[in-house]
Design a binder for these strands. Sequence first.
DNA 1: AAGAACTACTTAACACTGTTAAGTAGTTTT
DNA 2: AAAACTACTTAACAGTGTTAAGTAGTTCTT
Lengths: 208, 208
Amino acid sequence: MKKQKPKEDLKVLILEAAKKLFVQQGYESTSIRKIAQEIGFSPTSIYLHYKDKNDLIYNLHQVGFGLLRDRFMPLVVVEDPYERLKAAGKNYIEFALDNPEYYEVMFMMREPMDFLNHNCDEEHWLEGERVLDFLRNTVLECQSKGYFQGMQAEDVTLQAWATVHGLVSLYLTQHLDHVIDVIGAKSSSKEMIYSSFQVLLKLMLDAK
Amino acid sequence: MKKQKPKEDLKVLILEAAKKLFVQQGYESTSIRKIAQEIGFSPTSIYLHYKDKNDLIYNLHQVGFGLLRDRFMPLVVVEDPYERLKAAGKNYIEFALDNPEYYEVMFMMREPMDFLNHNCDEEHWLEGERVLDFLRNTVLECQSKGYFQGMQAEDVTLQAWATVHGLVSLYLTQHLDHVIDVIGAKSSSKEMIYSSFQVLLKLMLDAK
DNA sequence: AAGAACTACTTAACACTGTTAAGTAGTTTT
DNA sequence: AAAACTACTTAACAGTGTTAAGTAGTTCTT
């Protein structure tokens, strides 16, 4: 009775549908059943290709890192390491604002990390490590030009990452919206991200 | 048939049970039904005292802010504003590490903010604003002593908050664990929080 | 060519979740 | 004594992730 579907690779079809629903409706309301309905298969068929929902989320997280890499790629041509670091911060923030759902799954959820810990042979966070390596190398270059003297490059890298992550994650959880009230309504919460980022840059420059 | 329970204020009883389960088992597995079972009432009875689960979460978020205030209270006696700012950062981090569940509900979840936006008359985030006001005033005092010249106090405040929030939230989502691999396994992820925080302090001091 | 094994999917069900409509004791008011 | 109100309960809805068991269709083996 059942005619075999056109020999399509169902695994990628599932991920495409997951991506679509995920970006359209966010993580919360992207259920296994909805994904299945989107592609015209039964919900259980998804479990033949992905271990569980965390597996699927982990794959979306990887797709997100692909998009982030596209933002960082153009920066390798920037000669001056401090300019490159600045641009990396700006592009990171823009990536988060343009792809909030992906950003959440990449940096704000425990699930993909859980999946990594319990299901992958080497528990290496390959995607994240690659991005951080790029940042650390840039920081190291900055140090050879006189920046960040007397500090560990790793600590500086993490500090810079934590600042931009802190800003965008507080924005995405809608905490920044309410900060405007107390801290002066002169600008939007989105603008506050950038003006606070400028403070980081100024501190880094002044400390040279 | 039903004997009226001892005229206890069920509303606080529910919150106590929610607090207990929440701290013990985390948000994910604290269901309305479990809370109800914990106190020996039916699940629906909870809806007589709280609008929905977000209402309950918002109340837990407020409990958390009470705990955070206890950590900041001792700091008002610190004379030097920069020392006070340093201590605030340290205490903030320690609060997050000691109360991960509360920290998540206070600063990493959208739900309490959603509840605030849709259900409270004045959509003022009273708890958060109070903490931020304390920080901003400290930053302002720092400025009068020569720190953070040429910067907006509000932007400096947000930058400092974002850094410590970024550090602890990346730690709580287990992202920092994997950073150790690439960035040098010389210290634990918990220690990295503090050494990165030291970079922030050094940048702030050097920029004076 | 016939039977066994395998592939790729489906149906049905389990054990949960938040939430609401309707019902019911017990108390208070009229 | 009757009506109204309070504070709760039972039953159900619509949804979730997930698994066990079943079933067509294909391929391999003898």
